[in-house]
Nucleic acid binder design. Sequence first.
DNA 1: TCTGGGGTCCTAGGACCC
DNA 2: TCTGGGGTCCTAGGACCC
Length: 399
Amino acid sequence: MDAFFVSVEELYDPSLKGKPVVVGGKGHERGVVSAASYAARKFGVHSAMPLRTAAALCPQAIFVDGHRDRYELYSGKVRGVIESFTPRFEMASIDEAYLDMTGTERLHGPSLQAAHKLHEAIRAATGLNNSIGASSARLVSKVASDQAKPNGVLWIPPGAEAAFLAPLDIRKIPGVGKVAEKNLQDIGIYKVGDLTLLDDRLLMERFGKMGLALAGKAKGFDSGSWFEKEMSNDDDPKSISHEHTFTEDTAERAVLESTLAHMSEKVGRRLREHGFHARTVQIKFRYSDFTTFTRAQSLDHATQLDTEIFQTARELFDRNWDKGRPIRLIGVHTAGFSETEGQLDLLDGDKNEKLKRVFTAADSLRDKFGEGSVNLAGALRGRFRERIHDGLPKKPEPS
DNA sequence: TCTGGGGTCCTAGGACCC
DNA sequence: TCTGGGGTCCTAGGACCC
């Protein structure tokens, strides 16, 4: 989808159309650009850029908050169209999908025709611009769809893959970011085609596993099967985390601890939703100068209890925080999932069951009355706590 | 002009085991 | 006096993606 978040916002407020629009927050806030309209991009604004930078580059830009629920709604509509084209597809993200069109020729015609049909169908169902790349290989199609923007269709015929990629900047290859780009440029590689001239041994030595994958990509090969994920049913998350950047850096223990408690609750809740128990709890904290630390601890059993996550997180934080040094960001991360908690002795098992019931009850209270309705005692202590906006509609407080 | 939040995957060292 | 080889798990950090 083209400038997806911005385009969806335009559907809700047509007056935004054609104007420089930035989604992600207000121009003075701490945060980054989630999406920028094409009019804003003309000023050099792009996603991942600090909002304050965007405001400096384009003072007349209209800054709007993101609405995840809206994007999910429209993502669902797009998905509906895709489903009607082929059962073999994969949503790669909220605004990106791959379709395996093998065997649909009689229904949809050859690739390019099918691509145009899909393009029109998405446009008709959502009113949104989108771009489509069609080819024999997933990676090539993705790059082609980028090249087709805005609102275009691009077909790379079989055999033309490597020639299509060769003149493009190395950075266009998914997986090549700032760092890899710099490292490649240092050895004289600027275009995808330059890569194919290097031998695999050198790439492996200098860039490891990624180097080798890169060599394949440059030639337009796909690594692995097309629909690995779908086949292996592998869409369960491997980690669940929440983090928060303060509006102002803080060294106040009460604020930091209650935020940790709040993050722990959010993580615990999502673990219960998935029916997961986590063995490893990790915290992350960042000081004013942006130096960032993570500290992890694996438990002897797995847990989905807010209290246990919080206790572990608090200990980790206590042991590692340079007390008094202001903190910019703090977060709680869990991983190492299993379906059950594993071995607990009788006493712990009993306590565990009781707490589980407590938190499950808290979950349904939050469903009914909103996120703010129930808190860990630790979280409540934050009279000091700064308001964390959960992006959920305000609901009446329970009496 | 400072730099979000939620993820995945990779690397690398050390502990520990057989 | 010199200290194997293979494997797994844990931890920390970093690149990258949307």
